[in-house]
Design a protein around this nucleic acid. Structure first.
Length: 402
RNA sequence: GGAGAGGUAGCGAAGUGGUCAAACGCGGCAGACUGUAAAUCUGUUCCUUCGGGUUCGGUGGUUCAAACCCACCUCUCUCCA
């Protein structure tokens, strides 16, 4: 079972790979993944980590998903070059609700091996002195500063004590979950490595168990979801790629994956589909375009459900084969006899009139299959399909009471 | 608290009284080529009623004229405590 995870590319760093392998293959363990509710939705990176949780859960291991209600108030400095904006308590409360709902969609919280969802705010109520005496003593600042995760913050300067506190909290979470839930493994993205290792070390120090075998707790990271160009996956021109359809439409979500680099397809299929690795390799070798389609479909299915995935795949194919399907992304506006430029701004196709004008001058606007070169073009039909560049299509219905 | 260095368009970074809507690089967008991929080449990248308008941390000031000079404020960094 461990080998399957490894083959699929989930295993990046491990505190003790042999031991983790044994745990996963021979035991039914309790493990956890932490997510800080720093936004009111999850992005694709969170979702990726959750697919590891799903896989472990399917193998019979017991998942805990920790929602970092306390840690979100501090803000993880890992890998950052600037101080995180501090969130208000109300904001975190709201985010928590939204995030929990999404987590419930992706990880089984019913059935005979339900995942448990916990919030670290419930045990982070210790007073400061107690916490510092219990946890703070075990942290060596020199050592903390030498870790990679503080590197950028250190280079940019201005690392605050608040941020240093983050690691102590996350480390303590692990110890606490071990005490209360018997949790022995933490999984997470590789950016969390230092925080996770801090947890295993804190555990050892607090229990003074360095020489007792089989009493260890372990950490396992999966690689960061990056594209072939090294950029983090999920950054789009309109912002982050979210997994809630209110924040990123199913269509945009699907398009994001269908536009992936060829080199990324195999890896993404390993993560987001259940096809055997050998078959995935074969698929990519034989027909990369087809494999890409399968990949985009599978991710969309996982995130938005099979019905939506089928719908959106069909839609995408129709649009890009030149047809104008009914359920194309549609915008309704009140006007009639409207200038193209105003229309483009009004439908949010472009942020400004200048941008609209530029696009037209460069031949990037096509309305009902006719290239528009005149910035004074007037649209007087009831319904048009407007195309911006090669990939953006919307249908506009005019003269509609909103 | 003291001393110094800084804050320029999405980012990095030039510019230090008029010729600056501000070089250059990255990123973004569009065009050509393609496979809704990559690479490459070309154009473009504050807003505009195309007259102009509003930008260079903030607020005042000097000047015919300020990103550039002065004062105060604010934020960041480095060194000292």
């Amino acid at each position: 079972m461990f080998n399957e995870l490894k083959e699929r590319g989930y295993v990046y760093q491990a505190t003790n790979e042999e031991l983790i392998k044994k745990m996963i293959n021979n035991e039914k363990i309790t493990f956890y993944l932490g997510i800080d509710p720093t936004a009111d939705s999850l992005h694709i990176g969170h979702f990726f980590a959750l697919t590891l949780v799903r896989r472990l859960q399917k193998m019979g291991h017991h998942p805990i998903v920790l929602i970092g209600g306390a840690t979100a108030l501090i803000g993880d400095p890992s890998g950052r070059s600037d101080l995180r904006k501090t969130l208000s308590k109300e904001q975190v409360e709201y985010n928590k609700k939204e995030v929990i709902e999404l987590v419930k969609k992706f990880v089984d919280v019913d059935g005979n091996n339900p995942a448990k969802i916990v919030d670290n705010v419930s045990w982070m109520k210790d007073n400061y002195i107690d916490f510092m005496r219990k946890v703070g003593v075990h942290f060596n600042v020199n050592k903390m500063l030498s870790t990679d995760c503080y590197k950028k913050r250190l280079e940019e300067g201005g690392l605050t004590f608040l941020e240093m506190g983050y690691m102590l909290m996350q480390a303590y979470d692990f110890v606490h979950l071990n005490e209360t839930e018997g949790c022995v493994l933490q999984v997470g993205g590789s950016d969390q490595w230092a925080n996770m290792v801090a947890g295993t070390e804190l555990f050892r120090k607090m229990n003074n168990l360095s020489n007792i075998k089989n009493k260890e707790i372990e950490a396992l990271t999966c690689p960061l979801l990056v594209k072939a160009d090294g950029e983090k996956m999920g950054k789009t021109s309109s912002g982050t790629l979210w997994v809630s359809r209110e924040k990123t439409t199913v269509y945009d979500f699907y398009q994001m994956f269908i536009n992936s680099y060829d080199e990324d397809v195999e890896r993404l299929l390993c993560f987001f589909s259940d096809y055997p690795v050998s078959e995935i390799k074969k698929m990519c070798k034989e027909d990369i375009i087809k494999a890409k389609k399968v990949m985009a479909f599978e991710v969309t299915k996982l995130v938005h459900g099979e019905e939506e995935a089928i719908k959106v795949q069909k839609l995408s194919e129709e649009i890009f084969s030149g047809n104008n399907p009914n359920n194309m992304p549609t915008v309704k506006i009140e006007d009639n006899n409207i200038n193209v430029i105003d229309l483009m701004v009004k439908t949010n196709l472009v942020p400004s009139k200048s941008e609209a004008r530029r696009l037209i001058e460069q031949g990037g606007i096509i309305i009902d299959k006719e290239k528009i070169m005149d910035t004074n073009y007037i649209v007087n039909r009831k319904e048009i399909v407007i195309q911006k560049g090669k990939k953006t299509y919307i249908k506009v219905i005019l003269n509609e009471k909103i």
